[in-house]
């Protein structure tokens, strides 16, 4: 049962990264769109994510529940030493979710729209950024349970160039996912071209910031190169991701929008696989060589069985409903595009 739960944990993180990520990306794209196109972009975006955005964020809740029920040591360590970035991320989550629904449901369209829009865009950037910072910090051996002063324990645990570049990388990847996702959402040729260009830019930005992640890792003596290239799974995943990048760049000007989405999603999956595979079963690396493992700190069998069972039952109910939701609105959109 433990392994089933770990699989669920990994998948919830992945789905949050892909679906929640594309959702954050929508706001990031809006942030990086020139004034002239902002309105148009917002409308297409809204049609694309409106019905599903709320469900996309449930993956985070599932992740948190799995952590505190099945791996409480991981949850509490993160909660204590990542308190500040978690708090900032939560502020982003509050601001983003409320601004998104307020701007759509406000009965009067006036200058308040501008306020909601600004908050929405800014928090779409902040939230994935701090998510990335937190993710980077879990593997950068900065969390120090023996720290005696405030700065060492609660600030330097996450305030470092490596964690910050992982944060920026997450933002770039979210923008990339959103742009690729949205290409297939519009039939307008100019709009399509604009989103293809955006997708290209964010893809290149991801590589650039990805390079920055490697450089900061070198500077801070984090053996990132070894993690990626030091084992067969890492190398294979890296090669496959690279191939998929080439395929993606080969099909930009075609109509294969679903293939584009699959390729983009595949690249992100490979990145997550590379990082988690290398450290598995350890999930948080601590200063001085310690670690928190998913296997060693396990809770009682009864808890694991109950949690695993709950997750299996949950997927029986949730997954078909979720796929039907995405499928039906996708179909409605396609029909609408065809009739144009």
């Amino acid at each position: 049962m433990l392994y089933i739960i770990i699989a669920f944990l990994w998948l919830s993180v992945l789905f949050y990264l892909l679906l929640g990520g594309a959702d954050f990306g929508a706001g990031i794209l809006e942030l990086f769109t020139s004034k002239v196109h902002k309105n148009e972009t917002r409308k297409i975006m809204y049609r694309a994510i409106g019905p599903i955005w709320e469900a996309n964020h449930m993956w985070l809740v599932i992740t948190v529940v799995i952590l505190f029920t099945g791996f409480p040591k991981v949850f509490t360590t993160m909660s204590i030493y990542m308190h500040i970035p978690l708090l900032l991320m939560l502020m982003g989550i509050i601001a983003r979710g409320t601004a998104f629904s307020f701007r759509h449901y406000d009965a009067v369209r006036d200058e308040m729209q501008g306020v909601y829009n600004k908050i929405f865009r800014f928090s779409s950037f902040i939230t994935p950024f701090f998510l990335g910072v937190i993710a980077g910090s879990t593997v950068s051996r900065r969390i120090d349970p023996n720290a005696v002063n405030f700065l060492d324990a609660y600030v330097y645990s996450w305030l470092n160039p490596f964690s910050f570049s992982v944060g920026l990388f997450t933002v770039a990847v979210c923008g990339f996912l959103a742009a690729v996702f949205i290409i297939g959402q519009t039939s307008d040729e100019n709009e399509r071209k604009r989103f293809i260009r955006k997708a290209k830019i964010f893809n290149i930005a991801s590589f650039a910031v990805g390079g920055l992640v490697f450089i900061t890792a070198l500077l801070e003596k984090i053996p990132l190169v070894d993690w990626v290239f030091g084992n067969p799974v890492g190398i294979t995943a890296f090669v496959l991701a690279t191939i998929s990048v080439f395929i993606l760049w080969g099909i930009w000007n075609t109509n294969k929008t679903n293939l584009m989405r699959i390729l983009a999603g595949f690249q992100i999956t490979m990145i997550l696989l590379i990082i988690t595979w290398k450290h598995y079963p350890n999930i948080v690396l601590l200063k001085g060589g310690g670690y928190i493992s998913l296997i060693e700190n396990q809770v009682s069998d009864k808890t694991l069985n109950a949690l695993g069972l709950a997750l299996i039952i949950a997927s029986i109910f949730v997954l078909p409903a979720l796929f039907y939701l995405i499928y039906s609105f996708q179909k409605i959109k396609e029909d609408a595009l065809k009739s144009h």
Binding site: V65, L311, V318
Partner: peptide
């Protein structure tokens, strides 16, 4: 967490379904 996590994990499911249905 390991003791009273059960209702939370089921609640997560119910909440998820609620979000889907609301969509």
């Amino acid at each position: 967490g390991p003791i009273f996590g059960m209702p939370f994990s089921l609640e997560g499911t119910a909440f998820f379904i609620e979000a889907i249905a609301l969509g």
